[in-house]
Design a protein around this nucleic acid. Structure first.
Length: 423
RNA sequence: GUGGCCAUAGCUCAGCUGGUUAGAGUGCCAGGUUGUGGCCCUGGAGGUCGAGGGUUCGAAUCCCUCUGGCCACCCCA
């Protein structure tokens, strides 16, 4: 019988990988909370309708990338492909925006998309992000971009590049859409199959088609379709970012894949990611989202970043932490009769808050010490016949090659002192 | 979803044009040391050669299907 493997496009996050994940997640929580964002968690499954309405039924995500199934009552559920729709639903359903406005939230967790997997693209991946809900202001947009920027700075990730654009209001987008259709319609026969379809379903996406890039060059620019309000709004966002010394690249062709975006949109790119998946994340303003979900119109702005891609880049740059030792002290018995005594010493150390591994098996002492090394323990406590007879323990410093025998009553205090921990 | 490359011990890989019981390094376990690690020596375990089917006297090797990984496209995290 063949062994059971993890499903296609999924990965186990094994102990050796945990340090890097925690580093990224903890750093993000810290940076977000430094900006007064509070943590929130939402279900991994949501009503399919949530994403159909929020993300847009003509988007790739909803068209072909969702894991959707019926529950026993025949209701259609979907494994969340992104976080903003769920967080917005949760916040507005709980009326949190009526307690505090704007509402600042951060989150992290697994997301699911059924694309063909490859490096940096999995069926299940981890995303973290923030949402600022309830205020339309340039200052909020700049804050959101700045938090992303500061997050990567906190990780020591150099070389991130901010791509920024404005899509304007829904009306602006509609106008721009018309302009694009008017421009592309005469060219229809010369467009690729995908683009011919996009022309009818989602003309904005024509812009980032690589095959038809030649036409995009002279296509109408979105800036020309922006209302005065949106133009000024975007101008203020850029101004604040400039004041904050956050370098941005204006990219008029940047069109985010999700329908709910309005006005400011941005992506974060890194050159070390292979060309196809060069985005660490992206975000923007979504003033129309709440209404799409059936709530009172409520503006919002946020971003989402890929944890696995961030770790890939961090490893590439050599700034990711390696596997962390999971133990401080190994307590080893010498012969079987000392097993109980060794267990007692281990309990003493654990009561003092020291990560302690007990090895009271029947292996030879030298093998036990070898394991202690491998596990990354800094100290070994040897419990043999003599120690038990005299009420002592031998405390060996594995890096100093030195050891001392002390009364067992002093074990915890001595260990804490050597480890540099507070009593 | 479309196209291409790939799949041999836990890991990194050998295995010539199909020919007996599939190898190495490393890791793991044990012995060398009546109780002291990172080195060394010796031995051992570990593979239905990704899975299933086919061709053949004979398949890790050739063919088909499936599964999975990688790459490109699409798009994004």
């Amino acid at each position: 019988m063949p062994e059971i493997a993890s499903p296609r496009g999924t990965r186990d996050i094994l102990p050796a990988d945990q340090a890097a994940y925690r580093w990224v997640l903890d750093t993000h929580s810290r940076v977000a909370e430094l900006h007064a964002y509070r943590p929130v968690e939402t279900p991994i499954i949501e009503a399919t309708e949530l994403f159909a309405r929020a993300v847009g039924s003509d988007t790739d995500i909803v068209e072909k990338q969702m894991f959707t199934f019926d529950d026993r009552g025949g209701r259609s559920l979907t494994l969340r492909p992104e976080g903003t729709a769920g967080v917005t639903r949760a916040a507005l359903a709980a009326r949190l925006d009526q307690e505090l406005r704007p509402l600042r939230l951060h989150y992290a967790g697994p997301m699911f998309r059924a694309e063909r997997p490859q490096a940096g693209r999995q069926h299940q991946f981890t995303q973290l992000g923030i949402e600022c809900i309830g205020e339309r202001s340039a200052s909020v947009d700049a804050e959101v971009v700045e938090i992303a920027w500061r997050f990567f700075a906190a990780l020591g990730l150099h070389g991130v590049q901010l791509q920024v654009n404005s899509l304007g209001s829904p009306e602006d987008r509609a106008r721009y859409r018309e302009a694009l259709v008017a421009y592309y319609e005469p060219l229809r026969d010369r467009l690729c199959d995908d683009c011919q379809r996009r022309l009818d379903t989602n003309p904005l996406r024509l812009l980032d088609c690589k095959r038809d890039a030649q036409f995009a060059e002279s296509a109408p620019k979105i800036a020309a379709s922006l209302s005065r309000e949106s133009t000024e709004f975007f101008g203020r966002v850029l101004e604040i970012l400039d004041t904050a010394a956050i370098p941005v690249t204006l990219n008029p062709r940047l069109v985010r894949g999700l329908d709910y975006y309005t006005d400011t949109v941005f992506e974060i790119w890194h050159e070390t990611l292979s060309g196809a998946q060069n985005a660490l994340g992206g975000g923007g303003r979504y003033d129309g989202l709440a209404a799409l979900l059936g709530f009172a119109a409520t503006p919002g702005c946020g971003y989402a970043l890929g944890v696995e891609r961030t770790i890939m880049v961090a490893k590439e740059l050599g700034v990711a932490p390696g596997a962390a030792a999971g133990v401080d002290v190994l307590v080893a018995s010498v012969d079987p009769p000392q097993a109980a005594a060794a267990a007692r010493q281990a309990r003493t150390l654990r009561d003092a808050g020291i990560r302690t591994m007990l090895d009271a098996g029947e292996r030879r002492l030298d093998r036990k010490l070898r394991s202690a090394d491998k596990a990354g323990a800094r100290l070994a406590v040897v419990v043999g016949e003599d120690e038990v007879r005299d009420g002592n323990v031998t405390v060996r410093d594995l890096s100093q090659h030195s050891q001392q025998r002390v009364p067992e009553a002093e074990l915890a205090a001595l260990t804490l002192r050597i480890l540099g921990m507070q009593q």
